[in-house]
Write a protein that binds this DNA or RNA. Structure first.
Lengths: 368, 368
DNA sequence: AAAGAAATCGAAATCGTTTTCTACAAGAAA
DNA sequence: TTTCTTGTAGAAAACGATTTCGATTTCTTT
């Protein structure tokens, strides 16, 4: 982080000589910024003509255009966005609703959205709803007042979706939890496939007793992950082992506790598929406390591919959730909707994939 | 809400005597949301009266107020924010400029800003500048068009500060790198004290040879950290040990490399103060590769208190940088400025403190 | 009962831009 | 020359709210 401060400060040494704008404009306007009317008067043309120049319309002669452009440049004129928004009915803003801001999981989504919006010249309005549907609804209601061009909602509640559909605003859902039948534009990831791939990977290494943590959550993604796990076992001709399916609310603590319980089993698993990376961190902690080595005595697979999985010890093998693309895709779709276009693919699912690092190996009995 | 629009339109359709007015109003209102004018007509009052009710002004009689409020409620009216912004000169928006969005360091700052703005009923516009001064300047220029009420800039460049001061907009700087003489409103943390405390902590444990990683960065915070380290050594009557002051650009990789070099020294240190948590993660990796145990064979202290330091193995002792408060304080100050108040304390410095976990112990020779 | 004070309400102006829609000029076609 | 385009420019009307300020009405006071 501070690394970049370095080169950043370097380029600082070339201190750009900024063209100082004429202070004459001050005379005309109280807050110092000229309006179209003033520019028009100074240029000796009418207000609409200036507007036409600003908007690149054709019906302005070249000399007039150049004169107006010169004055605009000279006085450093920028048009009042509020007035423009009022007249055009567009605000240049897009709202993004996240459950939480202090959860690094959402960061790349935010980043992806920000990238696309920046390219499109739109500004990003960010709100955290703290996982409360009423907050979501409240926010959607308050931005229904022409103050946004479109909305992106991560993990929307049912109520939020209803409210969105009612509002008539363009919107795209990210990580929609809703039923499969929902028709609203949305972007998701292949959680089922991720669960399947992770489990299959462990099976291929020779593991037979593979635990899963995170059974309880009613969230769509969680349900898909465990379904993928079960399907992989099934495809390998193995029976389900209910004692190896642990509760877990996808926190570090629940990963820790689930692992302790698993280790007390008469026949503990040789591998743990930890539902997500946070739980995997808890798994590591429990294993370390009990003096068990990863991957020699226990293989571990995570899900999400959070940044810190790279610096875990050993680096965690995990399923990559393409969160940046989630954000980019959703934002791109929303831009289309705002533009009045139809989406040929309103419901997009982005692929996950396995990131192989050093937390897995064949089970001990096969190693020897 | 659509239900109400329905009945709204229905009642309009059946109102013959107001037909001419109605058709006009309908023609101009494409998206079906009522305007103040329509509410006023339905309530049988004037436009200003509705406005007064909306703004809680005193000169409206109770019966009138109640009637208008009922109609507003019934029709689910929300006022057009663009129109309001134009007239009042306030947008209800605050811009936050961050160097990057994918850096978890900034997350709590963002969270703190978001909290305060939410309480104040303002919306947060987020932009990443990618550490480029020209991006900062470009953004500041484009929001100078009355489209924001105030700006918060994290790690502002010199040029950005100049631009801000020229713009006349309210602004507060976070982590200002500038010289001590700068008078602009800003919030920082006590980096020097953090460096001093971390080093003193290690000295008290009995360490004599304490390394520091991150010498090279010209960033204000980095300079203060190493200055604190040196001052602590000095206060303990120890000489500076240049061979123990390592270069480092505050990435995981540089922590790793610096540690390898330190271990090759004829007399390696017994403790490493790692400049920041990311470098500490690299230190852990190098030590683990060389088979050295933390804290038994090497004590490590980080800086920042990133979330993952808690789940490092062992949990990292580090200096807490109060980033949430950084965001909250800056936002609170900005709110004051927007409100036209004077700041009695324009330049705030927030205290850091040591978070003691399990990565430090007395050096080996003293243990035995 | 008359006059003054206070409460209540609305007409009209305003914020700064965009969008018709009309007017006029110059050039092309008849 | 007359008529018809074509190209330019501007007058005026929105967009939807807030604010000012004058006009009523109601309430006190003497």
């Amino acid at each position: 982080m501070i690394a970049q401060w370095l080169c950043y400060n370097r380029s600082e040494t070339f201190r750009g000589e900024q063209a100082q704008h004429k202070s004459m404009a001050r005379r005309h306007n109280i807050d110092g910024r000229p309006t179209i009317a003033q520019i028009a008067r100074i240029a000796g043309v009418s207000v609409p003509t200036v507007s036409k120049v600003l908007n690149g319309r054709a019906d302005v002669s070249l000399p007039t255009r150049e004169k107006v452009e010169r004055i605009i440049e000279e006085y450093g004129f920028v048009r009042n966005r509020a007035a423009r928004a009022l007249r055009k009915g567009k605000t240049g803003l897009v709202d993004l609703l996240l459950p939480r801001l202090d959860d690094e999981y959402y960061l790349p989504i935010l980043e992806g959205v920000a990238q696309v919006l920046r390219e499109a010249g739109l500004r990003l309005v960010l709100t955290a709803t703290d996982y409360k549907p009423e907050e979501e609804v409240r926010w959607i209601t308050t931005v229904t007042d022409h103050s946004t061009d479109g909305i992106l909602v991560v993990l929307p509640s049912e109520r939020a979706i209803e409210q969105l559909e009612r509002s008539g605003l363009p919107f795209v859902l990210i990580h929609n939890q809703g039923g499969l039948q929902a028709t609203a534009p949305s972007v998701r990831i292949t959680s089922w496939e991720g669960g399947f791939v992770a489990t299959t990977y462990l099976l291929r290494l020779g593991h037979q007793r593979i635990a899963y943590i995170g059974k309880t959550s009613p969230a769509r993604d969680a349900i898909e992950r465990i379904a993928g796990y079960r399907a992989a076992l099934d495809a390998a001709g193995l029976p389900l082992m209910p004692e190896l399916e642990c509760d877990g609310d996808f926190t570090e603590a629940s990963g820790y506790q689930a692992t302790l319980r698993l280790l007390e089993l008469p026949e503990p698993p040789t591998a743990i598929f930890a539902g997500n990376d946070r739980q995997a961190a808890g798994v590591y902690r429990a294993l370390h406390e009990r003096g068990l080595a990863v991957p020699e005595q226990m293989s571990v697979v995570g899900f999400d591919n959070l940044p810190y999985t790279e610096i875990m010890n050993p680096p965690l093998t995990t399923i990559h959730a393409p969160r940046l693309e989630l954000g980019r895709t959703a934002a791109t779709m929303l831009l289309r909707l705002i533009n009045g276009e139809q989406l040929e693919m309103p419901r997009v699912v982005l692929p996950t994939h396995l990131v192989e690092r050093q937390s897995c190996s064949p089970p001990r009995q096969q190693q020897e």
